[in-house]
């Protein structure tokens, strides 16, 4: 199968900041790649390079077999892009925005108009079609911007955080739109902060941090990379949390994550139910009461936490998972 997007060794620096530090990416044709990473990881920078907006300092990239750096205009004929911040013209109506984009894709006046109407319908914006985009809510603008990316039925789509700021209903709607596109053969690279989104939509996932790839694979592969099941425990008395951590560390196959704010521990284990019992015995022996205990499969949140040392939506340095932060990348 050919690759819709290939990037090798992308480097982009802004002064001292290495926004991308030798990033490799691949999107096989007709598949979805989700790029996960904390704030400042370099997701938007990668998207901007692949969509011809900026040039990398070094490295190569091609989209649909066309070199992004050498032939940006040819690349633009095959892509649809929706950036991280909705780029709609506030003084045009929703309809005029899409009609303009259609004309600039050279669809011809008639088709541009028809396409604009169809997309407004599809994205639930038909009622607001003739209102200035200035009067749209944030989510409506976001949808209009996404519709703009689809105007020319591009075979390769880039969506930078497409569902950030959408309400749950719009988000589910968006997922359906994306699934339909992919079913029709569109290749998609999307960045996201929502692990659930990557889990549901993506064939492949890459996790990046500091402009480097730190893990890649399918959702299942990534989950197994960070260990099997997790023991999730909430103790009744927060002051006993550290002692509980000490007691359970011998059972763990990876780093134990302590979450002080919810008096919780996450212990990666591989023995299933027998270790659940073992853990409870150990805590009971020191009279540490628990409010809640459970065994669950790892989520992508765990992957994220383990690999990057901080949660996906954390703006700051590691706050939870001090142990995870010390751990080297995937085993």
């Amino acid at each position: 199968m050919a690759d819709a997007v290939v990037a090798e060794g992308l480097v982009k620096t802004y002064g001292e900041v290495r926004a991308l530090d030798g990033l490799d990416l691949r999107v096989p044709e007709g598949t979805v790649l989700a790029v996960l990473g904390p704030n400042g990881a370099g997701k938007t920078t990668a998207v901007k390079i692949l969509t011809t907006l900026i040039r990398p300092d070094s490295g190569t990239a091609s989209v649909a077999g066309v070199d992004v750096i050498a032939s940006p205009r040819a690349v633009r004929r095959t892509i649809g892009v929706s950036g991280q911040y909705a780029a709609v013209d506030e003084y045009l109506t929703g309809y005029e925005n899409l009609d303009m984009v259609g004309r600039l894709y050279h669809l011809g006046a008639k088709q541009a108009r028809q396409r604009a109407r169809d997309l407004l319908e599809q994205f639930d914006l038909a009622d607001a079609a003739n209102r200035m985009a200035k009067t749209y809510s944030g989510g409506m603008r976001r949808r209009l911007d996404l519709a703009g990316a689809l105007v020319a039925h591009p075979p390769v789509l880039f969506l930078d955080e497409p569902t950030t700021g959408l309400d749950p209903r719009s988000r589910t709607g968006m997922w359906q739109v994306i699934r339909d596109l992919v079913a029709d053969g569109t290749s998609l690279l999307l960045t996201t902060q929502y692990l659930e989104e990557a889990d549901r939509l993506a064939d492949n996932i890459v996790v990046i941090d500091h402009g480097r790839l730190i893990a890649e694979g399918t959702a299942d592969q990534l989950k197994s990379q960070v260990g099997g099941e997790r023991l999730e425990i909430t103790v009744s008395d927060g002051t006993q949390l550290r002692r509980a951590e000490e007691l359970l560390t011998p059972l763990a196959v990876g780093a134990v994550v302590r979450e002080d704010d919810r008096r919780g521990l996450l212990v990666p284990v591989d023995g299933g139910a027998s270790q659940l019992a073992d853990a409870l015995r150990r805590l009971d022996a020191e009279s540490i009461a628990v409010d809640d205990v459970g065994l669950r499969r790892p989520t992508l949140d765990d992957v994220f936490l383990t690999l990057t040392g901080h949660a996906a939506e954390d703006k700051d340095a590691p706050t939870t998972g001090h142990a995870a932060a010390k751990q080297e990348s995937a085993p």
């Binding site: 901007k48 633009r76 892009v81 950036g83 909705a86 780029a87 013209d89 984009v101 894709y105 050279h106």
Partner: peptide, 17 residues
């Protein structure tokens, strides 16, 4: 600033337009 130029620059339109 509003990203409209980003939108234009990813379209296959004439870059001088």
């Amino acid at each position: 600033q509003k990203g409209i130029v980003d939108r234009f620059r990813t379209l296959p339109m004439s870059p001088s337009a």
